[in-house]
Write a protein that binds this DNA or RNA. Structure first.
Length: 489
RNA sequence: GCCCCCAUCGUCUAGUGGCCCAGGACACCGGCCUUUCAAGCCGGCAACAGCGAUUCGAAUUCGCUUGGGGGCGCCA
């Protein structure tokens, strides 16, 4: 299927892939896939000083992990390349020079120090900070003098002093700005790299981007971009400004709100399909009830009209719930396969590796329903693997019992279990349930005591299933140890 | 300070003039199930920011106020 829709995700490798950025990528991807268009990834690496090592890889990994495949960009190539802005400097220079020769831009020789002072003064006088156009109308002579001083100029856009610039945002409707509030922003930095504004406009045009879906923080720079498109003689794309994702305190999501990088979520045991589903519902919804949607369903039903205008707070609690839903939906072998890396990494070092595959397969059904994240799996399953249990012996004494009755219960259980020819769930229940009555105990009392003896905890998977998986030998050993602990109490 | 955007339960949201004394989900609180935990099921709590205007009728339209967010870099 061909379509005129071409969208892009244009991350800057200056940090790790923030969930807000990834949500933007997701919406672009959904929009492209829904329309049968192209999804382009372009790397905006024009800030040499802020470049972070490994960030590019992390961004690409994050996209791949979520299944957001791109048609053009790094690793994929494409006929509009290169897709790294650092490899397109000539193109930006040419555009900047053209604007200068047309009279739409000019060279500025102001030092960073002068600019800082100017700004401080403006703030002090409660004026809107912005370039004072000091170099806008330099004479040829003045320019020559500056050049003679050896100052490398920047190129600034000559913003119109009056009039308005407006556009029709696909999500917000008509938006209008006074040109007088737009200052002469920089197009080309003195290091020869373009600023975002220039590079973004030039590339979106050259790459034939039809729709720009980006976060709302870009809304106020859109008139600058529009002005640039006009000066360059380019047809602007359609714009859609997506609602922001905020932290729990309603401020822009940042490190202090906890995990913000998509890679953090992977490490914390979130499933990519759950993450995708959750992120899609942050600022978009299908109807008044659907919560769980597969990627295919998301693609089929995605539309700009259903994107909300309101900023959304990232609700980690709900993500946890949704991840649990996805974990429970997994087939056993799938769940096991995905849990293995976590088990391998987080089970105590004393546990022998590699983990016995058959045994792991029997343990997993017992933890699947209880895990909200894969990270919790080793913790939930730990007692199945360790040799020695550590717990507070007093826990062995169930309510309305004392040390001796608990020890006696364990002792009798031991005798009965020893005789058991088949150690499966049914046989265990057949022996232990009547035993409780025989001992004059409530089922809950006996089972509680045994649960602690066998698992070391008061909350665990169902007792008989747990014991069956642990096996007769291990169970008897643990019950004996428990009995001895009680006697020493 | 200036400019722009936004405004429904604590949170994510449904709602585009009457179907809404506002629906769903997370969280929370009860109950059921039950050997604990989890899951599941049933029930409950909880919102149209305020004020004016338009209209027979407004969460839905308009205006003002208030509140929140974003932007104002040789960052993106």
């Amino acid at each position: 299927m061909t379509s005129s829709v071409r969208v892009r995700y244009a991350p800057s490798p200056t940090g790790y892939p923030h969930v807000g950025n990834i949500r933007t990528a997701l919406f672009n991807w959904l929009f492209a896939r829904h329309a049968g268009g192209s999804f382009v990834v372009r790397i905006e690496d024009t800030d040499v000083t802020r470049k972070v090592k490994g960030a590019l890889e992390a961004i690409l990994d994050g996209l791949k992990w979520l299944g957001l495949d791109w048609d053009e960009g790094p690793e994929a190539g494409g006929k509009y390349g290169p897709y790294f802005q650092s490899q397109r400097l000539d193109i930006y220079h040419e555009a900047a020079e053209r604007l200068v020769s047309q009279g739409d831009a000019y060279h500025c020789y102001c030092s960073p120090e002068r600019l800082a002072e100017m700004r401080a003064e403006q703030v002090r006088r409660k004026q809107p900070p912005g370039y004072d156009r000091h170099c806008r109308d330099l004479s040829l002579k003045e320019r020559a003098a500056k050049e003679a001083e050896g100052i490398t100029p920047v190129v600034r856009f000559k913003a119109p002093l009056e009039g308005q610039t407006g556009f029709d945002d696909l999500i917000r409707g008509g938006v209008v700005f006074e040109n007088a509030t737009i200052d002469d922003f920089i197009l080309l930095k003195s290091d020869g790299y373009p600023t975002y504004h220039l590079a973004n406009v030039v590339d979106d045009h050259l790459m034939e981007i039809s729709h720009v879906l980006r976060a709302e923080e870009w809304l106020s720079s859109t008139p600058r971009h529009l002005l640039l498109y006009r000066a360059l003689g380019f047809e602007p794309p359609r714009f859609a400004h997506l609602p922001m994702i905020l932290g729990s305190d309603r401020s822009k999501l940042s490190k202090r709100h906890g995990a913000v990088s998509i890679t953090d979520y992977r490490e914390q045991g979130y499933l990519p399909e759950a993450m995708l589903n959750f992120l899609a519902l942050l600022g978009w919804s299908l109807d008044d009830k659907t919560e769980i949607l597969s990627p295919e369903e998301l693609i089929a039903s995605f539309s700009l009209e259903r994107i909300s205008k309101t900023a959304a707070i990232f609700n980690a609690e709900k993500l946890g719930w949704m991840n649990g839903v996805y974990i429970r939906r997994l087939g056993l072998s799938d769940f096991t396969r995905r849990s293995l890396p976590f088990l391998d990494r987080d089970l105590p070092p004393g546990v022998e590796r590699p983990l016995p595959a058959g045994y792991v397969e029997r343990v997993m059904p017992l933890v699947q329903e209880r895990a909200r994240t894969l990270l919790e799996v080793p913790e939930l399953a730990q007692f199945f693997f360790v040799d020695e249990l550590t717990y507070e012996p007093a826990l062995l004494i169930a309510r309305k019992m004392d040390r001796d009755s608990a020890a006696a219960a364990l002792e009798t259980s031991l005798e009965r279990l020893l005789e058991l020819p088949v150690f499966d769930e049914e046989s265990l229940e057949a022996v232990l349930r009547p035993l409780a009555e025989e001992l004059g105990l409530k089922a809950g009392q006996l089972f509680g005591t045994l649960r602690v003896a066998v698992t070391g905890r008061t909350a665990a998977p169902p007792l008989f299933q747990t014991m069956a998986v642990l096996g007769k030998e291990q169970c008897l050993k643990r019950i004996k140890a428990a009995r001895d602990r009680l006697r020493r109490l």
